[in-house]
């Protein structure tokens, strides 16, 4: 599990210092602080960013909104973001609202509000609402990552690191090369959100990353995976063999 990378765009140093302290205490990784529009663009494209916190007013002009508009023009490159503002001015808000998904954080803010705002931004951006607040689920799935709530903060896991997933009732055991952990998510949801070209069900209780398969032994109903893991291949899901590229 990795820390989540946050890019802060804020021109007031005291504010950004406070924010950095707060985020780092909650196991977030701040990849940079930009104080202007240009700097923000440079950092956004040079660093790996998971989420942005954008102050609407940079040096007295609402450049934060312009920045958000800029990064959302390319949907593939877009990332979740949170607006930070001390103004409740309606006109500014009406403009900021046009950049979707819209979530904001009003100054002065406390720790809970910041963490909540980040969670909300991720939920809205990946269109999986009511995940982190409820007790039933704790994971949002994006194209590359799982965002998992751990305690008060969030963690992420690269989907490509996952070897296989073992489903146990409401829980899912995620097995990666290095670790093994449990997340809360329904089976139907996880099947719906995972890319079927990379992940495939082999058994009632198993979902396998196709890229991690080393050997399929149909006679024993067994699949050999990287890291000496093996899972069962049930009759029902034997079609899977066709999907795997094999040497001929």
């Amino acid at each position: 599990m990795d820390k989540i990378n946050v890019l802060i765009i804020e021109d007031t140093v005291t504010e950004s210092t406070r924010l950095i302290k707060l985020l780092e205490e909650n196991n977030y990784n701040v990849v940079g602080v930009a104080q202007s529009f240009q700097e923000a663009l440079n950092l956004f494209y040079s660093k790996k960013v998971d989420i942005l916190i954008i102050d609407i007013f940079l040096n007295g002009v609402p450049e934060g909104i312009t920045f958000a508009e800029t990064i959302t023009t390319v949907p593939e490159a877009a990332k979740p973001f949170v607006f930070l503002t001390s103004s409740k001015d309606r006109q500014i808000f009406e403009r900021a609202k046009l950049t979707k998904p819209f979530s904001f954080l009003l100054k002065p803010f406390n720790e809970l509000e910041v963490l909540y705002a980040i969670e909300m931004a991720i939920e809205k951006f990946y269109e999986q609402t009511d995940v982190f607040i409820t007790d039933e689920e704790d994971t949002v799935i994006s194209n590359d990552n799982l965002f998992i709530k751990k305690g008060k903060s969030l963690k992420k896991v690269l989907l490509s690191d996952i070897i296989y997933i073992e489903v146990e009732e409401k829980y899912c055991n995620i097995i990666t090369e290095k670790e093994k952990f449990v997340i809360l998510i329904s089976l139907t949801k996880i099947l719906k959100l995972l890319d079927p070209n990379n992940f495939c069900r082999t058994h009632r209780n198993y979902i396998v990353n196709l890229n991690k398969i080393e050997e399929i032994v149909p006679s024993d109903n067994l699949i050999q995976l990287q890291g000496k893991h093996h899972v069962t291949l049930s009759e029902r899901y034997k079609d899977l063999i066709k999907k795997v590229r094999t040497l001929k």
Binding site: D89, I92, K97, L112
Partner: peptide, 16 residues
């Protein structure tokens, strides 16, 4: 002021 009625989870707001 900005005013926009949304669906809110009362518990979270109170916590905040």
């Amino acid at each position: 002021g900005y005013f926009h009625i949304d669906t809110l989870r009362l518990f979270i707001i109170i916590e905040h």
